[in-house]
Design a protein around this nucleic acid. Structure first.
Lengths: 176, 176
DNA sequence: ACACTATATCTTCCCGGGAAGATATAGTCT
DNA sequence: AGACTATATCTTCCCGGGAAGATATAGTGT
């Protein structure tokens, strides 16, 4: 036996720290390290799928935010920034790319001369509808071997943790 | 009442999708969306702490990998890349910055002319020792209101999920 | 020893996003 | 109306990392 196959990378890192810094309690890494590692793995897999539709994650998020808005699939850039948790500068660039690709259209707001309105084009609507359905299938696959009971339990724990971390009244939104 | 305060952002997004795409089951977002949101929140908080020590997250990871190696706190760039889950190009740049800051030292390997050896300087060792202790305190704070029992349960669920996602034999390492 | 392939690191170029400032328009107060 | 402040978006500049190629050295087979 050269290796304990029941130990994952996080456990190995913790073991190394226990040798290097026996004075510290590295238990929190058991949760936080694994959470980050899962997140990074999921992001990689999700991004692969977006790429099949010619989208980056950021572009996907913008299209999704517009799609969720419902007919006529419009939102102001500032709203999109809130919904997708990025700066307005990032939204400008994402919308630039999506507009270039013919997936969204940008016009001035009638009501407010400073404002713009970003709207899904029919092509954008078709694309995000296909991509989002595939995305959900992909997420289901990634939850794969968790039993429904485990998934519920996990969701509950994450929900209560998230409630701690996010001060109520925090308006920022979430990755889709 | 204008808003249900028991609903978080992920729940709101799911509710929007149920209207926009009633044909799809968006349950997976309950877990995956919240996990990503927690990860992003944690990363923000952890990064704030690294910054107090003048470090980026990537630099912290490199110092931590060297510290865990034990005396004499040396590792090859390629090893560091494996341990920190980035490309060797990224390691080169991180080490450039750390060397500039006097926290690590880089020399040629005696054994292999292609190789380099990166070693913590005494200043680097002192810094990562302080920073890592503070990092653990910070992580404990971030787990805050999860009871020990909840934390254990969560760790167990994450561990088994991670085991699915990471094919055994995957050599990549983890965020500290 | 020579040719060929493999490996370790570094370099170059690119990409996406953040931060801060620029610009244009709204709103408010007098 | 005029001045001042607030707001929405866009622009500019920067930063960190990825991908792919360049370079130097090892290893291997003949």
């Amino acid at each position: 036996m050269t290796e304990d196959h029941t130990e994952d990378h996080v456990a190995r890192i913790q073991a190394e720290w226990r040798v290097a810094r026996p004075d510290l309690d590295v238990a929190p890494q058991g949760v936080i390290g694994r959470l980050h590692r899962i997140a990074s793995h999921l992001t990689g897999e999700l991004t692969l799928l977006y790429a099949k539709y010619g989208l980056t994650e950021g572009e996907f998020d913008v299209l999704a935010a517009l799609r969720r808005a419902g007919t006529p699939y419009e939102r102001a850039p500032g709203e999109i920034a809130l919904h997708t948790m990025v700066t307005t500068g990032a939204v400008t660039k994402r919308v630039d790319r999506l507009e270039e690709a013919g997936l969204v259209h940008r016009r001035r707001s009638d009501a407010d001369g400073r404002g713009r309105v970003v709207r899904l084009t029919p092509a954008g609507r078709r694309l995000i509808d296909k991509a989002f359905a595939a995305h959900m299938t992909n997420e289901r696959r990634l939850l794969g071997t968790l039993s429904p009971a485990q998934a519920d339990q996990l969701e509950e724990l994450l929900t209560s943790w998230l409630a701690d971390l996010e001060p109520p009244g925090d308006t920022r939104a979430v990755r889709e």
